[in-house]
Structures are given as C-alpha cells and as structure tokens.
Design a protein around this nucleic acid. Sequence first.
DNA 1: CAATATATAATTGCGCGCAATTTGAAACGG
DNA 2: CCGTTTCAAATTGCGCGCAATTATATATTG
Lengths: 146, 146
Amino acid sequence: MKTPVSDELSLDEQLCFALYRASQAIVASYREHLAEVGLTYTQYLVMLVLWESGTSSVGQMSTRLGLDSGTLTPLLKRLEQRGLVTRERAAKDERVVQIGLTRSGRATYEPVLAARRKVAADTGLTSSELARLRGELHRLSDHMEH
Amino acid sequence: MKTPVSDELSLDEQLCFALYRASQAIVASYREHLAEVGLTYTQYLVMLVLWESGTSSVGQMSTRLGLDSGTLTPLLKRLEQRGLVTRERAAKDERVVQIGLTRSGRATYEPVLAARRKVAADTGLTSSELARLRGELHRLSDHMEH
DNA sequence: CAATATATAATTGCGCGCAATTTGAAACGG
DNA sequence: CCGTTTCAAATTGCGCGCAATTATATATTG
C-alpha cells in the first residue's frame, strides 16, 4: 500500500466536504441568478438582513451573519458606493455605524426575490424537504457554536 | 411598513444560509484542531485527496475538489515549500503537473486523523445521523451540478 | 509538415473571511 | 475630573475562490 488509507479520511465520507460542496453549489446558483442584479452572495445576505430589519448597526449585522468588521466594512462601503445602502455614525453613540436602505436598495427586493425562486427551483427539493434539511443544519450549527 | 418583507426572504428560512452557517462552523472547528498541524481547511482537503490517491495531477485534483488552478496552484506551492508535497511536470505530457506526497506529508496523516475525530465529536451527531445528512447533501450537490 | 485547434497550468484581479492590531468613543473608578 | 478600561469599527495582512487571460504543450487537420 502506497499511502496510509483509512475510510475515516476518505474525502467522500467527510461531512465537512458534503457541506462544502453543497454550500458552494448553492452559492454558485445564486451567483448566476444574482448576476443581473449585480450582487455577490455575501452582499445578498447583507441585503436580507436589511430587508428584514430596516436598519442595523455593523455590530448587529456581524452577530446576525457571523461575519466580522473586516469583512463587513469594505463590503458595506461597496454597497454604499453603488447607492443601495447608507452608512452613518449614530448620534447617541459615535462608536456605532448605522446601516440603512436607500430607495434603490429597497427596489432591489423584487428582482432578488425572483432570483431566490430560481435557486430554490434548482435545488430540486420540495419546500418541506428543504425545511427539514434547513432545520437539521441549524441544529448542527447551534450545537457547534457552543 | 418600513421595508418590503416576506417570509420568503427571511434570513433564517434560507437553506443557503443554513448551509453557509453549518459549513463555516465545521471549518472553524477544523481550523482550531488543525492549527497545531499548520494546515488550513482547504489544504486539509488537498491532503485527503493525496492520501487517498497517492498521487494526482492538478487537473484531477481540480475535478475532485471543485477548485480551479487559480486556487490550487498557489496552495500547492505553499504545501511544496513546507515540504509536504512534490510538484513536477509529467514526462509524457509536459502540460500536466503531478502532485505527490513527501515522507513528511505522509507523516501528517496521524495528527490530522486525530483532529478529524475531535471535529466529529464537536458535531454532537452519531455516525449514522452524520451519514444520513452527508447523503442528503451529496444528493443535493449532485442535483445542482447538472 | 505547417497551421490551427485544443488542453493544462499558471497568472492576474477582485471579493470575501478571519486573525490581529489600531483608532476613536464611551464607561468606569478613584 | 483624569486616567484606565471597555467597546465598536476600521485597518492590515494573508489565504482562499472564481472569472478571465496568458503561456506552453500536445493534438488535429489540410
């Protein structure tokens, strides 16, 4: 035998690789369908938070998405430059930066919703299969984060 | 209502986000446990391929992992520099670059196996739950890649 | 055999993603 | 009220991850 091999380190048996593949496949589908809107996948996640909350500090967004300011700050600057988002220091506490939606940012909602539906169709799963898988994954994440 | 909202674009209901979170949680666990070995998560995947195959061209590795030369070439150079891997043009066809394991690369197998077991324990799933989830995810990926 | 087409890696450029550090603002403690 | 601590973002540096281009080698075709 040329190399040490055990089933335990077989690529196809790694949950991590299954997750990695699936996550990248979904992101690739989003990339395709979000192309005309001009959003990256991570920018899409940020927009989701804003459509849900209306407004959010960088810190709240960081907690919600599990991304830090090193990722969010430049990303938000790009969204601001494209006119989708506003960034301003809070008057009460000048440490925090509040992010809001512009009219143009709100208008992006519809085409993005259409993109999301195309991705959902690409998965080939029924909405109940999808919901079950989603639940299992959140359970796993919740467990691992503690 | 301040912003357009529908359950359909609620962050927590997106399968993509559940996948994204879970994948990052697993990778974070690997990062922690692979730290002493000095491998990144993607480098770990590359080593898995080599432990399985003994040797692999860049192209084969690309197909296997779904990563292109833009990712693999610099990563493999780093592994070569660290003495874990060999890179050489094939004599038969000088377009292809063959990647192999050094003695040191083979020796990394054991500590990495230990790391993998710690990650598996972190998931809190039994190996059968884990296998089932893995299967569902591969089914999803297979479907989306065609 | 020369010209063209195809295949394989390498390179370039840009956007994450995260660790570590820095900057500036509030909160706290004496 | 001043010095220290704590906190929120921003910055820096590095390793992916992918699209697009380039360089080189092989295959094909007239």
